[in-house]
Each structure stands twice: as structure tokens, then as C-alpha cells.
Write a protein that binds this DNA or RNA. Sequence first.
DNA 1: TTTATTTTCGAACGCTTAGTCGAAAACCTA
DNA 2: TAGGTTTTCGACTAAGCGTTCGAAAATAAA
Lengths: 196, 196
Amino acid sequence: MVQDRKAAERETRKQLILQGALTVFKEKGLEGATIDEIARAAGFGKASLYYYFSSKEEIFNALLLQGWQILWRDLEEVALASGNPRQLFIAMLKRIAELVNADRPLYEFLFFAPRSFRAEEIQNGEWKAYQTRLYNVLLELIEQGVKEKQFPQMEPKIVLQALGGLFHGLVFWGADRTSITEDEIAEMLDKILQRN
Amino acid sequence: MVQDRKAAERETRKQLILQGALTVFKEKGLEGATIDEIARAAGFGKASLYYYFSSKEEIFNALLLQGWQILWRDLEEVALASGNPRQLFIAMLKRIAELVNADRPLYEFLFFAPRSFRAEEIQNGEWKAYQTRLYNVLLELIEQGVKEKQFPQMEPKIVLQALGGLFHGLVFWGADRTSITEDEIAEMLDKILQRN
DNA sequence: TTTATTTTCGAACGCTTAGTCGAAAACCTA
DNA sequence: TAGGTTTTCGACTAAGCGTTCGAAAATAAA
């Protein structure tokens, strides 16, 4: 069908635009990401963007949703694998680290951008459901792990909060960001989450 | 002297403006913090602000510098107290937590805002020296602590990075931010930084 | 009270940027 | 090739915001 090819092309162009948005975001930061620049980065005129997206917010929203969908699809596999809570938890963090390393700009956007946006449309976007799902899965793993004495005896929410911050720091902080390998993460987790 | 009183009043008004800036920042976020709103929050007309500060950047810069100065003055005391590296390190984190709890908006600004600003003037501001000093003191404490086997045998920079993220998470993340007490922090650190 | 100085601020300026419009170009169909 | 449809984009509009201007109000000095 011609229809199909048309739709596919439209989708491809939308992806190009999202890609451009990501590029600009990476180079200029969230505030510096203007529609004009995104258009140029994607190889379109400014007005053309509005043929594919109805607003700047919609672009960011689409980026967030798509990113979280991919992230979740990937992590779900890990979550459903077999192993005890501790193993699964570490496996998930490792997988997140792998993904982040494979496409840093995307995940910086996914993890940082939501804090910066104040718009309702974005704060209550569809992507949020995936974030919540991930949070709950990790929380349950910790709850189980604590119950089975595989983690220190602590309030799971606090542990997750702390590990979230820790992981965030591990993966995104520091001057030379390439210096932290998966092995280091695993080793670090092993030391910090030691049985007691 | 009349001169003196004048200078003091000028200083007081500058403080009012900084206070207003903080209020608006807290309510509207960094991007939403306009000169108009800051002026209104501080009880001045917009143009009056420029009688005290020459630009918006200068206002943020002054806020950062003053905040870090106060923070550092406070922490220096703790750093110079007696105790082994581990004790000193924990004491410093506890003190930071106390300070943050005492004036959350200020420290959110101090710790979050620098990431958002791209302006040279702010990125290379005087405040940065204090941040560096704090970083180095904490790093040395960890290096000493590792040497003396009071911390797990790990790369101090990584430990600090991780703890930075962790602490960040502990203090700033989560829905109900008041729920984390100093005691919990201490307990958490004790468990995580256990000797091995 | 008069004059000089400091302080305040509404209004205007200039620039940036999200979003629109209308027409041209590219493409498809017959 | 002719007519219709899809896609592109330069130019324009409108709004927001940092900054400046000029004059008025408040305060101090004489």
C-alpha cells in the first residue's frame, strides 16, 4: 500500500526530529533547546516541525514516552528472569547501566529532564506510568531481599531512595564519565549491599 | 557615621532581594524565576533591583557565593574538630543534613542551580572555590579512612561520588521530604560504611 | 524652606523564541 | 502532462523577559 509507506515515512521523519531534539538538548541544555535549533539539527525548516508535532511540549513528551517504553521493555525481561531478589536487583541496575552507557544523551534526558519541566502535560505524561512501574518493581525486589536477609534490615523505600541517588551519582556524576565500568558498579553494589 | 548606616541599609535591601529571589526560585523553579517576580517578592519595583544588582546573573551569583560561604564556615568547624576520619566524615554529612533541613530552599538552590546555569560568569564564580574545598576535604577524609581500614577498600573518588549521589538522594528525593531524620542518616551511613 | 542626593519605579526598548500563515515545491495519480 | 494532495519553509506575529530611561518621590544637607 502507498498508505503504509507514507505512514512509515512520516514516522521516520518524526524520529529524525526526536533525534534532533536530543542532539540539541545534549549540546545546549534544556533551556537552550529551541525549536529553531531542533529543526536545523533534524534537517528541517522550523515550520515543518509543526507538521509533525503540535508543540514543543509534544516533542519532549514523545521523547520521554518512547525512551521510557524502550527502557521498560528491556528491563522487564530482566525483572522476569529467574534468581533471588538480590540477584535480580543487581541485574536490573547493571542493565540500566548498560543502557545508559549505550545512549547517554537519551538517558540523561530521561532522568534529568522531568525535573526541569513544570508543564502539566509533561509532568502527567504517559511516560510516568513506566517510571512508576520501574520504581515499584525495584521496591518489591528490595522488600523481598530484606525479608530474605539478602539486604541489610532497612526500610525498603529508604534503601531505594538512597540507591537511586547513589546510582544516579555513579552513572552521571564526575568529570570523566566513561571511567566507571559495569564491573565497578557490580563490585560497588556487592560491597554496599553486603549481607549482615 | 551616616555613611555607615547608609551602607548597612543598602546591604539589608540587597538581602531582601536575595531572599525574594530564593522565594521565587522555590515556587516557580529556575526558569520561572523572572526579575519581575523576584522584585515583587522582595517588595520592590522591577527597576529598583538594578539599583542594587547589575543583572539577573549577579543576583544568582551573589546568592550562590553567600550560601556557600555560610555553608563552608559552618563545615570548617566540623572538619577541624578531633576524631578519626570516619567520625569526621559522618559528622560532616550530619552537619550538612542539619543545615539543609534548616533552610531547604537555600540548599536546593545551592546544590541544584549550578547544574542549570550555563553562563560563564556563574559557572566560574567565586562560589566554586568553596565547593572545591568541601569536595577536597571530604575526599581526604575518605582517603585517610580507607587507608586506616575504616571504610571499605575502594577508590576514594568513586566512594565520594557514590555517597554524593546517595546523600543527595537521601536529603532531596522522595515525596515526603521531612521523613528522613538525622538519626536515620547516621544509621544508614553506619550500615553502608561498615568496616570489612 | 530650599537645594542636592539618594532611591524608587512605571513605561518603554530590544531581543529572543514558540507558534502561524500562505505560498511554493515535491510528489502522487490518472 | 494536468490536477490534486502532501510536504516544506521563509517570513511574520505575538508574547515574554532582561534591561534601560527618565522622571518622580523620599531623604538628607544647608
